[in-house]
Design a protein around this nucleic acid. Structure first.
Lengths: 191, 191
DNA sequence: CTGATTTCTTACCATAGATCAATTTATGAA
DNA sequence: TTCATAAATTGATCTATGGTAAGAAATCAG
């Protein structure tokens, strides 16, 4: 619990009152590699804060292709942001890539907190703004970069997440096949 | 001016005080087709609300390739969201695709308003949330769809913006070449 | 440790989309 | 209207990446 409170405390002074209300809606969980936290097609609206470990959101097409929308590690938030803020069922699943410690918060509870403490919305705004910037950058990268460039950016951006992410998932994040990624990696190695 | 106040008023009850403060920071402009509102590499931090007409954000690579990040029409906000919330210079330019009426707001002024009226942040949060959802959907589309699928989704999503957007810009939004788009369009026409 | 399963690599071929170049069509200014 | 310019189309290639299949390497469960 304290990790999240501390993390938020870094950019926002939390009164005791808010802290208590926050604690009341946070669900702490220690999860195993491979655990699914949220299933595609669910009505649950949750955000997950990663205290340690690594998770990802992904989508599997009918013909079995895997698409990774986001990876999240220590101090990141992860969710199905396509459906978090509306009434639709989740499109993505969220799974753990390693033993992880996470905090789950229901979006509706969070919204209540914002209404109760409008000043608390400030920390959230910064959070949303950062997310927008990074999503926009990702789009920019998908539009402008080759497979090799995307991978090189990925390993510098993500510092390869301590090697917990399998390459086929990195490929699915970059929008290329595992085979292509393997070739790109070979090409980089031989140069 | 009234368009923006009205638009915001739809989802948030604006006190006279907030309304006045808002009016004080909004810059209204009527612009021509082809006008550049924000240049790449600028330090200005602005958001633009489109009252009428159509604008886009784009990036030109050194070898002259054009990439469209966003189109905006009536009641949309547009900005270089990659740099709006940080200290970096703008990466994108913003141009008008038709005669348009727009309202320009400095981000710093907006932030002051959020501090002064935390409850005003609520409308902004909804705005940010919607943006996140749509950016995430766009990434999803770029990862999972073929050129033809992307174009078909585009024309249904955007209802082709009353034909003010040239096809080569649509192509640059979808991440394909104008030639490829032309072939896709031909294929759709013959079927 | 060992066999089973998953992930990664490699080779070969296929293809969507890119590139180049030429032509047609549309747009816009005088 | 008319010409100049920009945009769109088309055909002929080319290329980056995809698909398939098989084997190698890594990982995992018992």
């Amino acid at each position: 619990m304290k990790e999240l409170i501390e993390y938020i405390g870094k950019s926002f002074t939390l009164s005791n009152e808010i802290t208590n209300d926050l604690k009341a809606i946070i669900i702490e969980r220690n999860i195993q590699k491979g655990e699914i936290i949220l299933q595609e097609n669910s009505n649950r609206k949750i955000q997950i804060f990663v205290a340690s470990g690594c998770l990802r959101t992904f989508y599997k097409t009918k013909n079995g292709k895997d698409h990774t929308l986001q990876f999240a590690t220590k101090n990141w938030w992860i969710s199905d942001y396509m459906t978090l803020f509306n009434k639709e069922k989740s499109l993505l699943s969220i799974e753990s890539l390693s033993h992880s410690k996470i905090f789950i918060i229901e979006q509706s509870q969070l919204e209540k907190l914002y209404s109760k403490y409008p000043e608390f919305g400030i920390i959230n705004r910064k959070n949303l703004q950062n997310r927008i910037a990074s999503l926009q950058k990702r789009i920019f990268g998908l539009l402008t970069m080759t497979a090799k460039e995307k991978y090189q950016k990925f390993i510098t951006d993500y510092d390869i997440f301590e090697k917990v992410i399998p390459n086929y998932q990195i490929a699915s994040f970059l929008g290329i096949t595992p085979e292509s990624l393997s070739r790109v990696r070979k090409e980089i190695a031989n140069s």
